[in-house]
Amino acid sequence: MLPLRELLATHYAIQTEEKLVLDGKEGYRQGEYVYFTISADNKEIIYMEQAALAYYLVENGYRHLAIPIPNVHGEWFSLHQDKKYIVLQVQYTQQGNDLPKGEVLANFHQVGSAYSYEPQSISSYGGWKQLWIDKLTVFETKIEKDALDHSSNYHRLLMDVLPYIIGISENAIQYIGESEKDYRFHDADQGTIAFRRYAGNLVNPVLWTNDLVYDHPTRDLAEYIRLLMLGNNDQQEIITFLNDYQSIRPLSVFSWRLLYARLIFPMHLFDVIGKGFLNQLPHDQLHEEITVLLDKQAIYEKKLRHFFQIANVETESLHIPVLHWL
Rank of each mutant, 00 (worst) to 15 (best):
L2D: 10
E6T: 02
E6C: 09
E6K: 12
L7E: 02
L8A: 00
L8Q: 00
Y12N: 02
E18S: 12
G24I: 00
K25L: 13
R29Q: 04
R29S: 08
Y35D: 01
D41M: 12
N42K: 15
I45T: 09
I45P: 14
I46H: 11
Y56M: 06
E59Y: 07
E59Q: 10
N60D: 02
L65H: 07
P68C: 04
G74Y: 15
L79T: 11
H80V: 07
H80A: 15
K84E: 03
I86V: 06
Q91N: 09
D98T: 10
G102E: 05
G102V: 00
N107Y: 08
V111W: 13
S113W: 14
P119M: 01
P119H: 02
Q120D: 15
Q120L: 14
S123W: 01
Y125H: 02
L131G: 11
W132L: 01
I133Y: 13
K135Q: 15
F139G: 10
E140Y: 10
I143N: 14
I143C: 15
E144G: 09
A147H: 10
S151F: 06
N153S: 13
H155Y: 09
L158H: 02
P163W: 09
Y164I: 05
Y164C: 12
G167P: 06
S169A: 05
Q174Y: 14
I176V: 11
I176K: 08
E180W: 08
K181H: 11
D182T: 00
A188T: 07
Q190K: 14
T192A: 15
A194F: 06
R197I: 03
V206G: 13
L207C: 09
W208P: 00
T209I: 08
N210D: 05
L212Y: 00
V213D: 14
Y214N: 06
P217I: 01
T218P: 02
D220S: 02
L221A: 04
E223H: 15
Y224A: 10
I225S: 08
I225G: 11
M229Y: 01
I239W: 14
L242I: 05
D244G: 04
V253T: 09
S255F: 01
L259G: 04
H268M: 10
L269F: 06
G274L: 01
G276V: 00
Q285C: 12
H287I: 02
E288C: 07
I290T: 02
V292C: 13
V292N: 11
L293F: 06
L293K: 12
L294K: 08
D295M: 09
K296Y: 11
A298L: 12
I299Q: 15
E301K: 07
K302R: 15
K302F: 09
K303A: 03
I310H: 13
I310E: 12
A311G: 03
V313Y: 03
E316C: 07
H319C: 10
